[in-house]
Nucleic acid binder design. Sequence first.
DNA 1: GAATTTTTTTGGATCGATCCAATTTTTGCT
DNA 2: AGCAAAAATTGGATCGATCCAAAAAAATTC
Lengths: 345, 345
Amino acid sequence: MIVRLIDVARAAKVSRSTASNVFSNPDRVRQVLCERVQSAAKKLGYAGPDPKGQILRAGKLNLIGVVMPGQWGVAETLRSQVFVQFLQGVAEACDEANANMVLLPDRPGARGVGSALVDGFIFGRIEQLSQLETARQRRLPYVVVDFDAGPEVNAVIVDARAGMKLAVQHLLALGHRRFGMISFLRGAGTARIIPASSHRDLAMVGIAVDQEKLAGATEALAEAGLCIDDVPVLHAEPWDQNAAPLLLDAAPEATAIFSFSAMQAIAVMKEAQRRGIKVPDDLSVVGFNDIPEAAICTPPLTTLETYPIEKGRLAAAMIFANGTIQRRVVQPQLLVRGSTARAKS
Amino acid sequence: MIVRLIDVARAAKVSRSTASNVFSNPDRVRQVLCERVQSAAKKLGYAGPDPKGQILRAGKLNLIGVVMPGQWGVAETLRSQVFVQFLQGVAEACDEANANMVLLPDRPGARGVGSALVDGFIFGRIEQLSQLETARQRRLPYVVVDFDAGPEVNAVIVDARAGMKLAVQHLLALGHRRFGMISFLRGAGTARIIPASSHRDLAMVGIAVDQEKLAGATEALAEAGLCIDDVPVLHAEPWDQNAAPLLLDAAPEATAIFSFSAMQAIAVMKEAQRRGIKVPDDLSVVGFNDIPEAAICTPPLTTLETYPIEKGRLAAAMIFANGTIQRRVVQPQLLVRGSTARAKS
DNA sequence: GAATTTTTTTGGATCGATCCAATTTTTGCT
DNA sequence: AGCAAAAATTGGATCGATCCAAAAAAATTC
């Protein structure tokens, strides 16, 4: 049924080695034989060397696995524009290295980290060190993004703490003193306002990078003599459409809101405008990460550029290098646009 | 260096077969041996059966290759939100089938369609039948999206002609008679206005699905006694920021603009507003495809829902089915939002 | 305890191709 | 033509695991 190299070789009356060379090292074969093999291949409908066989010998696959966060699947993760930008960066580096990229779920049971046919892994978002164990066991190179897994692990990390600090300091410099904050849920769940007593409870906050954001905000506030406990906090998934009203209800006095995601920042702007609150005149809003919408919404959103594409490139490059452990920290930059203004006195 | 199954077998003093069974069919092995093998594996640091070896025997990879349009690379393609939505659909179907998804470039030379380790292909966008030749030769199942490759090829096709017709008919029903159109370039290039003589020259228009859009628009106009030749036409890539002004300059009299992409439709709205032209009062705008921005921009964009996620699912399902050739046509639906209104009399 | 059945275990073949050292053929030179 | 050197070709081993029929061991029956 399936035509193999050996069938072609037999049909052309040459050895397997010669037939193999016709496809992989044509210059080592006399032209007469070369043609004989090729015509035999064509007659039998041979599709060329089956990569399944090649791989076993070659060992290298030229394939990087990008591991998607476990709690969300691959499909859910693709809803994040920032993550897709990150993938763009990985794809760019892959293009240059003539490699491909496979999207892997981190569900136990699935053909994921434990058994995927790849040369290395990029962990897009992890929550626990233990998730790296399987990759380590397989002795394949791997890179962790936005998670500090110690000095022996390749890492590309955005300095989210510094970023959030920039954002809050920007608002403070504009004279704001009453805030509202939008954080991430840990795990799935519905949007909700968090009681002040839990504000600093890291166990409730999304993933490591979000905990860093919280730390940054807390620090910046503290340096201005303010306390995070006095700030109403909303926990919500970025795409939860029902979240923004909750915060505006909970923080009627706030003159500025900072969000852990750009999506929720934009949602808050929309909701404020719907209620007749003017942005940025009555309410300043700052987001985190830059997405296309942030630049074109009205007003354009002041937010943090976190260079996801660059991060993707760096991560993929580390896999291809596969040498000494590297560790790169990316510094976010504040993009001041139209959604922030001086606080009314 | 690398620990293989056979090393573990030797260390545990059992045969390869038994060692293999410990990992793949534990119930066939007595518990004593099972433990002996497992402890040997742990001692040697064996990471479990290497998928490279398994694959050769199993034959099946549980991996779908999504082929990206050749002219753009993988990274460029990920910039298209509609394409990413399509990928979401593929990912959903993969999740259910416990398979994975690899993104393949269609560059010659790259490890692409010709040699990728996959069970089947989804061609995201193709321009010529010949691009399918390699997949056909490899005798792997494949699906083509938005391209009519004949009755012997799995296909998921959006009825772009009907969609565009809906859009133009909507504008006609609102009383519009003077239009502007934004089409796609074939290949890369800078945005430019197309002379009337070339309006119906399909060779200039993007890919097959875009040619269908042109046909739909032409038909709808003709049915209202209008001719596409009288409509100023702009060719531009969706993300070209400099395109919108060109069209507004070329079509100062237009009261309605229809675009082959949502991105350019939004760009035109922004540019019009910048010039003091009110949308939809002075100018109606219709896009194609629905992206998140379209729903939240001001005014929200009237556009066509083309169900990319559903298309992705259907395409992946056809690969998994791998039976009789299927062919699904998806009918777009017009989402009337705020960017269209009655023409001023 | 021998005979029979059932459960475990094993070695050989296989998946499809590539590499390498040894062999055969061709070429070049006198 | 004869010999050496170069080029082309070949068969065996290998990549890492799984399958299968046969053999061995254990459990059951009389």
